[in-house]
Write a protein that binds this DNA or RNA. Structure first.
Lengths: 224, 224
DNA sequence: AAATCATTTTTCGTATCGGAAAATTTTCTC
DNA sequence: GAGAAAATTTTCCGATACGAAAAATGATTT
């Protein structure tokens, strides 16, 4: 269902805020780098030796770096970034990579980051922008897939859904199932358990935009 | 699909890595860092000894680093960043993200300008929901319309654009015009002056989602 | 609790970084 | 162009990063 009203109004507002500068001592900063590295490793469930293999660094070096006992050289940091599979800037993203004032990014069709789960295949748009106010995703729903209501998803924020192709049945906690066709859209509180499935005989394509989600180093969506 | 951390029964599991395989040798990368550092210094018209004073590093160290003859440690890189007056991520931001972080001083107008141009026809979705975190709108752009750069729109928040049909040329302040085709998308800071026009011979249909806009009683978009 | 295994931390020798000053190159001045 | 001044590069040696292996800590099983 499309609720439509003609016309639009625009106004111009105020500027956005800018990052705060932390006047930390150099050692504090180094420790901060270590914590970030540690987080990146643990998020993947890797041990020191596993990251050691992937990066080519010695276990001891990573250990010391994570605890801020050592100041890595550029070359070693690069090896780590490659071993982890992230861009170097990830190590410093706390200050820099979040949504920046004046940001402008284009995502050509089909170049998105692909994520697969048993039921869904979706592609995260603009995974490189870390703290977006909105997280847009392109999704494909396979036809004839089983629906398991144990898989209800709940997360903070609000969610917008637009059906681009095919038809989609939306199962929402405490609501009767609704079937949306191409061009139909949906807006709801993501805290309500929800679940999508293709309604037709063919795969469906959808656009989903969420709030209060962030993008992690892999471009995965995580609750903020 | 949506992997929400908080209490989600979902395991988004396998992280598909999109990491670009840069066949650059580590030395090449190091040289890249050097060039970036050199550029930052020259942009400010500073000599090696001037940056040496500001950063506390020896002249020789900076010299070697700029030429890629040496792999700086984290601590020295931090000193340099502070001496130059930039965030650490400046050294790496261009490596991965296709995303130019541009600091912009915007001159905001006090009120919204009503978009009554024949170019734009917007349909506000869900006008009955008053305080949405996102405001999705369906838009139609007539072909062969004139573009008046006086009509640049600026407003607080972030904006997501998806081309549903046809092609759209996006004019953004301080950016070269970009033409998006069906399926292409765009994410940017709405404070940057922007303007859309149909690029093809036919009308274009777009989806726009904004933050920090509200819906008034008439279903009009107003700044929050 | 002891024993076994997995993981992290510490130790220590070597390679590399990093700074002071000399050597070289570049830029300015006449 | 010659000479002086400024800027950059090279040299050399002390300080530190880095890796291999030993020691310590933590987890699991019997």
């Amino acid at each position: 269902m499309i609720c439509a009203a003609a016309g639009s109004a625009y106004d111009c507002g105020m500027s956005t805020r800018i990052q705060s500068i932390s006047p930390d001592s150099p050692d504090t900063q180094r420790a901060d780098f270590g914590r970030r590295l540690h987080a990146l490793r643990r998020d993947r469930g890797w041990t020191l030796s596993e990251l050691s293999e992937r990066s080519g660094l010695a276990v001891s070096t990573i250990s010391k770096a994570e605890r801020g006992l050592m100041s890595l050289t550029y070359d070693r940091m690069l090896q780590l970034a490659r071993g982890i599979g992230v861009d170097m800037s990830e190590f410093f993203s706390a200050e820099g990579t979040s949504f920046a004032k004046g940001s402008f990014a284009v995502a050509p069709k089909g170049t998105f980051q692909r994520q697969e789960t048993p039921n869904y295949v979706y592609e995260m748009l603009f995974p490189e922008i870390r703290n977006k106010a909105m997280v847009p995703m392109m999704g494909s729903l396979k036809a004839h897939d089983l629906v398991d209501f144990e898989d209800f998803v709940r997360h903070p924020g609000q969610e917008f859904l637009l059906v681009l192709e095919g038809a989609v049945t939306v199962f929402a906690e405490g609501k009767a199932p609704v079937t949306l066709r191409q061009g139909d859209s949906l807006y709801f509180d993501s805290a309500r358990g929800h679940l999508y499935a293709s309604a037709g005989a063919v795969d469906a394509r959808i656009l989903v935009v969420c709030t209060e989600l962030s993008t992690d180093a892999d471009g995965q969506a995580v609750a903020r």
